[in-house]
């Protein structure tokens, strides 16, 4: 029952998805590509690329992985698994948020989680760059995007578009 397995895997992951679905990229890769062999490296990076190029919340990369592994049922299973547990929790907690916001333990968790999220996003970036099988020109593009993104206010969509164009021209 691959759909059920997907649902359980992703529902568990949703509890440690500090930094959103993006933070889960490395773990999704580990589970889906390395552990189960449901997808290969190339397909995984392609799905990430498609999610980047489409409008909507970042969580949609999860939808695409579910789709590719197990079709429509897989897409719904992973998306629901990623969103449902926290949605239920937040529905129950929001009225009490005021009463624990700012408490020492709450601040400690917020502070403590932040560096972990940084590490997760960085790992995801490393992994996508690795799995995409980039050559020197591809790595140069990665570096250029980092610099442009940090130094200018250019909308990310332009950088995505530039990546697609350079790719189409056979330069990446």
């Amino acid at each position: 029952m691959i759909v059920l397995a997907l649902f359980v895997e992703f529902a568990v992951l949703s509890f440690v998805a500090f930094g959103g679905a993006t933070a889960l990229l490395p773990e999704m890769h580990r589970v889906v590509v390395v552990e189960h062999g449901w997808l290969d490296d190339t397909t995984f990076t392609h799905l990430y690329a498609i999610a980047q190029a489409a409008p909507g919340p970042n969580v949609l990369v999860v939808t695409l992985i579910g789709w590719k592994v197990a079709g429509l049922a897989g897409a719904l299973a992973t998306t629901l698994a990623m969103c449902l547990p926290m949605s239920v929790l937040i529905y129950l907690l929001i009225d009490r948020w005021e009463s624990f916001a700012g408490r020492r333990w709450q601040q400690a968790v917020s502070l403590g989680v932040a560096p972990l999220a940084v590490g997760l996003i960085f790992s995801g970036a490393t992994l996508i760059a690795q799995a995409a099988g980039l050559g020197w020109s591809g790595l140069a593009l990665v570096a250029t995007v980092v610099v442009v993104c940090l130094k200018t206010k250019l909308h990310p969509l332009w950088l995505i578009g530039a990546g697609a164009l350079l790719g189409a021209l056979g330069l990446v």
């Binding site: 996508i128 760059a129 995409a132 099988g133 530039a162």
Partner: peptide, 8 residues
Amino acid sequence: RGVAAAGA
């Protein structure tokens, strides 16, 4: 591949 590189 180009989009993935930009995304990374």
